[in-house]
Nucleic acid binder design. Structure first.
Lengths: 152, 152
DNA sequence: TCGGGGATGTTATGGTATAACAAGACGTCT
DNA sequence: AGACGTCTTGTTATACCATAACATCCCCGA
């Protein structure tokens, strides 16, 4: 499922992700309201990480509120539901490649095109006795195949 | 060397780290100027991550410049030299626990007290064919032993 | 002693994020 | 239907994080 860097049928990819998101929310009794849904759609248009203000601009164009909390709230909701991930090193957000269940993942982040692929996180990650790990941030920054070849 | 969460002789810990930093700079022909040295000392006072503006305030009190670039430039230099690490998830900086050679590390980051321990990074981290990893960000967020016990 | 490069300082500005409050939508209980 | 509580959306205002651009200074080598 590291489709971010591979050519694939993106229309289907998007449609499936949206359907999975709807199913996940329904199952949990959470509401995928218009702003939230549109925010997810915006992120699903590409496998790229977008800043909150990029998302906000798109939402404003679509007639939603134009102030930062509008975008941050929708993004927070989607992150809580595991439908979107925050890429710490970019301070940006990317749609989840495997929605449906909340999960942790490692990310391959292209510094040039900002596309992000998701990989499974090893069971074992470094720790030290007595430290209670709550969240694991694993991000590999570098160049994706296309950007290495100057294709993108 | 995960001393951040253990009691230890911190005066010695600090002194050794500073000596190692001086040695590293000397060897490379880099200049550990007064602002840079003071910035490192400030971070070495604790094993906690400090924001750039916290550092700046301390520098200003000590008679250095009071504008953000003063702190950011010193921090950038120290990060380049491997004497300080940036914690992406906190947008903050912590003195390196093993100065002397530039290296990558995994970090255990306490969300309550902001103390940070450094652990070796596994040789193997997730990737995908064709992706050229340039930098690895591995940060475990959670609660340190003291904060779990309400001690700190 | 005259450049020249690097370091330091400034002003100004831009990007990221949240607190606090007002108003609206919606289910539900009576 | 109407009253209530909760969740959601929207606003204003503000705080925090970061860097571009330019002036000055300092030190070293020619």
């Amino acid at each position: 499922m590291t489709r971010a860097f591979d050519s694939h049928d993106h229309a289907t990819c998007r449609r499936e992700a949206l359907a999975a998101a709807e199913a996940a929310c329904a199952e949990r009794g959470e509401r995928l309201t218009p702003v939230r849904r549109r925010t997810l759609e915006i992120l699903l248009e590409s496998h790229r990480a977008l800043g909150a203000y990029d998302v906000l601009e798109r939402l404003r164009e679509d007639g939603f509120g134009s102030q930062p909390p509008v975008a941050y709230r929708a993004l927070s909701f989607l992150v809580e539901q595991g439908l979107v991930h925050r890429i710490e090193a970019l301070q940006a957000f990317v749609a989840c490649a495997r929605p449906g269940k909340t999960h942790e993942a490692a990310f391959l982040v292209c510094r040039r095109c900002r596309r992000v692929a998701e990989e499974p996180l090893p069971d074992q990650t470094p720790t030290t006795p007595g430290f209670a790990v709550e969240r694991r941030v694993v991000e590999m920054q570098g160049l994706c195949p296309d950007c290495r070849n100057g294709k993108a």
